[in-house]
Nucleic acid binder design. Structure first.
Length: 414
RNA sequence: GUGGCCGUAGCUCAGUUGGUUAGAGCGCCUGGUUGUGGUCCAGGAGGCCGGGGGUUCAAAUCCCCUCGGCCACCCCA
C-alpha cells in the first residue's frame, strides 16, 4: 500500500462534504440549545477500561472493534468508539452529581475497526444528546422530541420512522431474558449458527436477526411487554402519551432491543430505508445502570447518538459561501491600493477575493472560477482618476466608480 | 473476521481473442486578445494501467499475493 493513501475507512472532508457535515453539526447546536442542552467535549481517547467496562466484555465493539494502544507510560488507551462512556466518565470524575439534572450534547470523531461500507467508516462522526439524573419518563420524551425536531430541522424527518420499544426495568428485563432463553433453547436446532452464539452472549439480539429461519422462530417468541411489571408498563405508557402530546409520531417495534444490561425502559431508533443496510440515523435509549456500573453514584440517564455521515448523505445540498467580489489590481501600486480597499470592504461585511498574482486575464479567470458576482478592476488609468472599474460578471457591463463611493456601489452585489 | 463486484490521466470512463509510440470527454496550461472571465478556435502538458511476483517472444489484458474502493454479512450511528 502507498503510505500516501488515507488509512482505510478514513476520509478527507472537502468542499460539499464539508458543508454537509457543518450543516448537520450547526443544526444540532441550534436545536439542542432550544432544549437547554449544553455542549460537552470529552477527550478523543480514554483509558481502555472506560469502554471495556461500560460496553461489556463480550460486545463486538470491545472484542474486535476498538483502536487500543499502549502509550509511552504503559497505560492502555482506546480511541473512543462512542461517546456515552466518555460523558459518563466526565460526570463521575468531574463530580457533577451535585448539579443534576444535566443535559449535554456532543459532536466529534469516533473510531471503530470495521470493514467500511455505505454509512460506515473507521473514523466517523457522531453527534449525540444525553440527559443525566432524571428518573421519570419526561426525560425520555424530551430526548426523543429533540431527536425528532433535529431531523425535522435537517429536512429528513419525513424520510424516517421512529421505532419505539421498552425493555422494562431490571426486574422485567431479567424475567424476559429467562423466558426468551428458554424459548430459543426449545428451538435450538432451528436457529442459525450466529443466533446460537447470540443465545450465550446476548440473547435479546436474536430478536433482530436477519436470518429468515430465525425470523420464523422469532415470530412466535414471547414479547417483552408480556413480562412487564406495573412500573415498567406505566413508564412506557407515559412515554407514549408524552410523545402523542408532543406530536412526535412513532411506530411500536416490539423486537427493537439493546444488548447491554444497563439499558432499560425506552429504546428507540429513527430509521430510514434510503441508506442501504445502515438504516439507523439516530438511535438511543435509557441507561439507568451505566454510571453506577462504572463506579459512580447511581444516576439515571437517557440519550441518543446520530451518525453525522449518514445524516450528511440524507440532507439537501447546503448553500456554500456567499459569492465574492473579486479585486483585480494591475501593477504594484494598484496591488497596494487593492489590499487597502479589500480590508476596508471586508470590515464592512463584503466577501472579497483578492487575486494573488498574474496578469489581468489570469485574474479574471480566477474571479470566474471563484464565482465572483463582480470584479473591481484597478489599473493605472483608474488610479490616475481615483476610480475603480466595476464589472458585473453576469452581464459583462462595466462602470467607472469613484473610490469614495465604491462601497455604496458594491452594496447592490450583496 | 466472511463473501461478491471493482482499481487505466486531476475527475468520469473506453481499451477487441495477450500484439508496435495506452485513448476520449471534462478539467488544467499556452496562444488567438500588450487591460477583460464565462462562449468559440488552435495548440500543449499530464499515465510505473493501485503495488509486488509469475506465465509468455510479448501483459492494462492471463494466474497468484497484497493494498485500496464499493456493496452485503456480522455488528452498529
Amino acid at each position: 500500500m502507498s503510505t500516501l493513501q488515507p488509512v482505510r475507512g478514513t476520509h478527507d472532508l472537502l468542499a460539499e462534504d464539508s458543508l454537509r457535515h457543518r450543516k448537520v453539526i450547526d443544526t444540532v447546536r441550534d436545536i439542542s440549545g432550544r432544549y437547554g442542552f449544553d455542549e460537552i467535549e470529552t477527550p478523543i481517547f480514554e483509558r481502555t477500561e472506560v469502554f471495556a467496562r461500560t460496553l461489556g466484555d463480550t460486545s463486538d465493539i470491545v472484542t474486535k472493534e476498538m483502536y487500543t494502544f499502549e502509550d509511552k507510560g504503559g497505560d492502555s488507551l482506546t480511541l473512543r468508539p462512542e461517546n456515552t462512556a466518555g460523558v459518563a466518565r466526565a460526570f463521575i470524575s468531574g463530580g457533577l452529581a451535585q448539579s443534576l439534572p444535566l443535559k449535554f450534547t456532543y459532536q466529534g470523531s469516533m473510531f471503530r475497526y470495521e470493514r467500511p461500507q455505505k454509512g460506515r467508516l473507521r473514523q466517523f462522526h457522531q453527534t449525540g444528546a444525553e440527559i443525566l439524573g432524571v428518573e421519570g419518563p419526561l426525560a425520555d420524551i424530551e430526548i426523543i422530541a429533540l431527536g425528532s425536531h433535529y431531523l425535522e430541522a435537517l429536512g429528513v424527518r419525513d424520510k424516517t420512522v421512529l421505532e419505539l420499544n421498552s425493555l422494562g426495568d431490571t426486574e422485567s428485563r431479567a424475567a424476559y431474558r429467562d423466558m426468551l432463553v428458554n424459548y430459543f433453547r426449545s428451538h435450538l436446532d432451528q436457529l442459525s449458527e450466529d443466533s446460537r452464539e447470540r443465545l450465550e452472549r446476548n440473547p435479546l439480539r436474536i430478536l433482530d436477526s436477519k436470518d429468515q429461519g430465525d425470523r420464523d422462530i422469532i415470530e412466535n417468541a414471547p414479547l417483552i411487554s408480556d413480562s412487564f411489571n406495573d412500573y415498567s408498563r406505566d413508564f412506557f405508557d407515559a412515554v407514549k402519551q408524552g410523545l402523542d402530546v408532543a406530536k412526535v409520531e412513532y411506530t411500536l417495534s416490539p423486537r427493537l432491543v439493546r444488548g447491554l444490561d444497563y439499558y432499560c425502559h425506552t429504546a428507540f431508533e429513527f430509521t430510514t430505508t434510503e441508506l442501504g443496510a445502515q438504516g439507523a440515523l439516530v438511535a438511543g435509549g435509557r441507561y439507568d445502570g451505566l454510571i453506577k456500573q462504572m463506579g459512580g453514584p447511581p444516576t439515571p440517564g437517557v440519550g441518543w447518538a446520530a451518525g453525522i455521515e449518514r445524516l450528511a448523505m440524507m440532507i439537501d445540498e447546503p448553500e456554500g459561501r456567499a459569492r465574492p467580489i473579486a479585486m483585480v489590481p494591475l501593477g504594484t501600486e494598484a496591488e497596494i491600493k487593492a489590499l487597502s480597499l479589500t480590508q476596508h470592504l471586508r470590515q464592512g461585511g463584503f466577501s472579497i477575493e483578492l487575486g494573488y498574482s498574474g496578469n489581468m486575464k489570469k485574474r479574471m479567470k480566477r474571479a470566474n472560477n471563484v464565482d465572483a458576482v463582480a470584479c473591481v478592476i484597478l489599473g493605472e488609468d483608474e488610479l490616475a482618476k481615483d476610480v475603480a472599474t466595476v464589472r458585473n460578471m453576469e452581464t459583462g457591463d462595466q462602470v467607472e466608480v469613484p473610490l469614495a463611493s465604491l462601497e455604496d456601489h458594491l452594496a447592490s452585489y450583496r
